[in-house]
Design a protein around this nucleic acid. Structure first.
Lengths: 111, 111
DNA sequence: TTTTATTATCGTAATATTGCGATGTATTAA
DNA sequence: TTAATACATCGCAATATTACGATAATAAAA
């Protein structure tokens, strides 16, 4: 089958999974980290930086853009990509919420 | 090809991607959240809770265990699963590190 | 020992992801 | 207009993931 049964889960669970999927490839992690460091970024830089073919990187950028993590603006011939600050905050909170759940009840007796 | 070129990326990038992959399915998010709430948990509960077939859940549990997020101890006929507190902290820090990188330089001018 | 209950593993079908060559598109330079 | 540059999209091959029926493994109960 290979198809996720999204209808079984809450909206929040599906969203977290979808966002996690965006980070679930080292190339996309690398792209995000590169954008975090550099103030701005041109697609062409990434081809040299990552060592993957240009179409492959373009595809990863598309996925990050689809989730809203990054945004791109056409800058003459090239494209400038950067982190979307609002969305970044949202995603940060999504994960923080998950991680905070445990801290609250960390005094349990575990198996 | 379908095979990730892990050799192109840093150890940290690969690890973050691998951990993110564990969260990249709503069933696994649901399992983790269930374990966060319940003090302890038996596999059978999850079959009723999630609505997926038993082998499917067993497979998701295996993946979470492989990453180290959860741990299970045999409890008679059934198995008790729970969050691994040490690993949870590690993973929390891994993500926190990523999210914190942006806050520092959030005064940039973006595209 | 036989049955029952609970979980794991195997095998397989359906679908998704990854990577890249070839090609298309759009903008600037000549 | 033509050429060059920078990305995006298409199409395909290889591999990975998801789901589950069938079946094995294990331990308690009868």
């Amino acid at each position: 089958m290979g198809v996720t049964k999204t209808e079984l889960f809450t909206k929040q669970q599906n969203e977290l999974a979808q966002v996690a999927k965006a980070f679930a490839h080292p190339a996309r992690v690398a792209i995000v980290q590169y954008l975090l460091k550099a103030n701005t970024c041109i697609n062409g830089n990434l081809v040299q930086e990552l060592g993957l073919a240009q179409p492959t990187i373009s595809q990863h950028l598309k996925e990050l853009k689809a989730i809203g993590i990054i945004q791109g603006t056409i800058e003459g011939v090239s494209v400038s990509y950067c982190i979307n600050p609002v969305r970044w905050e949202e995603i940060k909170n999504l994960f923080n919420h998950l991680f905070t759940q445990y801290a609250i009840a960390s005094d349990r007796d575990c198996c």
